[in-house]
């Protein structure tokens, strides 16, 4: 079993609901974001890039890519960062020494350090939020707790709190449930009949920074932004110009 996520960039409207629900659901302290959504190529979110009337807006949500060849796991000196039976990369908060080597190693900038005590920070702000119960993987590794200790690293867990003991999910991850564009899909990559396997097989998918050899398990369906095919064909009007090729 290897859980993976597929994100359809054609359907993503950049609303950042996934980022916010993730932050709320996992009680992330101020300044900490397990999930981020930005407009590709743009200095500011939701502003178009381009020139001369060829503007476009495309979004990119990025959380932990759950790498198969995860640099964060390989560099972690204590084994705090490890791969669960389900192929998910998790952090055991009781074992993490806060050396931040994993943060230097992860190319996706998804790992977040607790620069101050989150519990205190939330108390100061006057509110507490997030899934309230501890989650222990295989009964021993503390992979989720509402108030992580100061000085340890945290990141997306593929909503490990939604998982049953046998590794199946009772509820889909929060970002998948919350996405108003229904752009997110979650499932078992090893199961050829799962919807995610089907998408990965049949759609034009890509993964981020494959050249680093991380072998991520988050797939993006390329945005095609379909146009009016007739108009597109007419648009070429190559007959009146020097043609690049003879069709």
């Amino acid at each position: 079993m290897r859980y993976c996520m597929v994100i359809d960039l054609d359907k993503c409207i950049g609303c950042q609901t996934c980022a916010v629900i993730c932050k709320m659901h996992h009680a992330q302290p101020e300044g900490t974001w397990w999930n981020r959504v930005f407009t590709q190529g743009s200095e500011y979110h939701q502003s178009a890039v381009g020139s001369n009337g060829t503007f476009k807006i495309e979004y990119l949500p990025v959380s932990c890519q759950m790498c198969e060849n995860a640099p964060c796991e390989r560099v972690c000196p204590t084994g705090a960062t490890y791969r669960s039976k389900e192929g998910t990369i998790l952090v055991d908060y009781n074992r993490c020494i806060g050396c931040r080597t994993c943060m230097a190693a992860c190319p996706y900038g998804v790992r977040q350090f607790n620069w101050k005590d989150p519990k205190k920070a939330k108390a100061e702000a006057g509110y507490a939020y997030g899934y309230p119960f501890d989650v222990k993987d295989e009964g021993k590794r503390l992979v989720y707790t509402q108030d992580r200790p100061a000085g340890v690293v945290e990141k997306c867990t593929f909503c490990v709190e939604c998982m049953n003991e046998d590794g199946t999910y009772h509820t889909l991850p929060a970002c998948v449930r919350a996405c108003p564009g229904k752009a997110r899909f979650f499932g078992d990559l090893d199961d050829p009949n799962s919807h995610v396997s089907h998408l990965v097989r049949t759609k034009q998918v890509f993964r981020l920074k494959e050249e680093y050899g991380t072998d991520p398990k988050v797939y993006y369906i390329s945005s095609s932004k379909p146009k009016n095919v007739e108009a597109e064909w007419a648009d070429q009007s190559w007959e009146n110009k020097t043609p690049n090729y003879i069709p």
Binding site: T78, I97, G98, C99, R100, P149, A150, G151, V152
Partner: peptide, 11 residues
């Protein structure tokens, strides 16, 4: 440099 030096024994 360690955020949690008291966990260092886990090394």
């Amino acid at each position: 440099d360690l955020g949690e030096p008291f966990h260092a024994l886990y090394m």
